[in-house]
Amino acid sequence: MSALAAAAPRRRTSAWRAFLRDREGLSGLIVLTLFGLVAIFASVLADPAGLEVTKADGPLAAAPSWDYPLGTDHAGRSVLTMVIHGSQVTLLVGLAATVISMLLGTLIGITSGHFQGLFGGALNRFTEWFLVIPYLPLAIVLATVFPADVPKLIAVIIVIGVTSWSGTARLVRAQTLAIEARPYLERARALGGGHWHQMTRHVLPNVMPLVLANTTLTVSIAIIAETTLSFLGLGDPLRVSWGRVLDEAYALGAIDRGAWWWVLGPGVAVVLVVRAFNMCGRALERILDPRLEGRS
Rank of each mutant, 00 (worst) to 15 (best):
R10S: 14
R21S: 07
D22S: 10
S27R: 01
G28W: 00
G28H: 01
L32C: 12
G36H: 12
L37Y: 11
F41T: 13
A42D: 01
A46D: 12
A46N: 08
T54L: 03
T54D: 07
P59N: 13
P59E: 15
L60Q: 14
L60P: 00
D67Y: 08
A75F: 01
R77S: 04
V79H: 02
G86N: 08
S87K: 03
L92F: 10
V99M: 11
T106G: 09
T111W: 04
T111M: 10
G120F: 00
G120S: 02
N124S: 15
N124H: 15
T127N: 13
W129P: 02
F130G: 10
I133P: 02
P134M: 08
P137T: 11
P137S: 14
L142I: 11
T144I: 13
D149V: 13
V150I: 06
T163W: 05
W165L: 03
S166C: 14
R170Y: 09
V172P: 01
L177Q: 07
I179T: 04
I179K: 00
P183C: 01
G192A: 04
G194M: 07
H202D: 01
H202V: 01
M208R: 09
P209N: 10
V211I: 08
N214K: 00
L217G: 06
I223W: 01
E226Q: 09
G233M: 08
V240L: 11
L246V: 06
A251M: 05
G258Q: 02
A259F: 05
A259N: 05
W261P: 01
L264Y: 13
A276C: 12
F277S: 02
N278K: 12
N278Y: 07
R282V: 08
R286C: 00
G294L: 07
R295K: 14
